[in-house]
């Protein structure tokens, strides 16, 4: 009974071959369309990404007009000629005369919602940070996203102390976030009330990155200064 009912419901049942041809044919069309879209947009996408990083580098290193990219490989730094390198990178900024203005360091870590990617500037001469910008974050709009928008919070990174200790292996004072309006030391970050987790995450990300990268930078400062 049920078989006859099914047959009555589907009078023109397609053969397996027809279904395979339909699915295969449509997948082929889809494949061609996607490849076409990818090939046409790829140069623009790469250009946009490059520009975003460049803008961010010049934003966190005020006064610099040119830059050089270095890859961090173990304990050494290597000057990169192209931007395709995928490992950890730092960007050195120079002024018109070729003097080193500072180094922009990319760092990432877990935030409140997802991974936060930031870029901060480090001036070796003063051992202070020169600026900070959020490259990627999915923090709560209106609350957590203040880490990239709130001018009061961003001002923390103008002259935040990033001094190494005598051994030159770690920071003299670890970077910590404190409650809003209670910053009393140059290595403290004045937090955002309402975005406590996000502002603490930023402090942790910058601290972890600085503890790891700054000793390497100090070791190879001469090489970066001469753009080698």
């Amino acid at each position: 009974m049920s078989e006859t009912n099914n047959n009555a419901l589907q009078p023109k049942s397609a053969s397996t071959w027809q279904m395979l041809v339909a699915l295969g044919g449509i997948s082929l069309i889809s494949g061609v369309l996607i490849v076409l879209a990818y090939e046409t947009t790829l140069p623009r996408i790469l250009m946009n990404r490059q520009r975003a990083i460049e803008e961010a580098v010049f934003r966190v290193l005020p006064g610099s007009t040119s830059r050089a990219t270095y890859a961090i490989e173990g304990n050494a730094v290597r000057l990169l000629q192209d931007a395709t390198h995928t490992g950890p990178k730092i960007y050195a900024g120079y002024d018109d005369t070729g003097a080193l203005m500072g180094i922009a360091i990319e760092a990432a870590g877990q935030g409140y919602q997802d991974v936060i990617r930031v870029l901060y500037g480090y001036a070796p001469a003063t051992e202070c940070s020169t600026g900070f910008t959020v490259i990627e974050s999915k923090e709560t709009p209106g609350l957590g996203d203040k880490i990239g928008l709130d001018p009061r919070f961003l001002a923390n990174f103008q002259g935040l102390e990033l001094r190494l200790d005598e051994s030159q292996r770690s920071l003299k004072n670890a970077i910590v976030a404190v409650k809003q309006n209670s910053k009393s030391n140059p290595w403290e970050i004045d937090g955002i009330s309402g975005a406590t987790v996000s502002s603490k995450a930023v402090a942790r990300i910058v601290n972890d990155s600085a503890q790891e990268i700054l000793p390497i930078i100090r070791q190879h400062l001469r090489q970066i200064e001469t753009q080698q």
Binding site: Q18, M19, L23, S30, A37, R44, N48
Partner: peptide, 30 residues
């Protein structure tokens, strides 16, 4: 498109156009 596989084909077609839009928006503004 045979009736039995129509939803599968629709999803493939829709996903194709979404992927294209995804690339297009990345190209317009990151």
């Amino acid at each position: 498109i045979p009736k039995q596989v129509r939803i599968a084909t629709y999803i493939v077609i829709i996903a194709t156009f979404v992927t294209m839009v995804d690339y297009a928006i990345q190209a317009v503004s990151l």
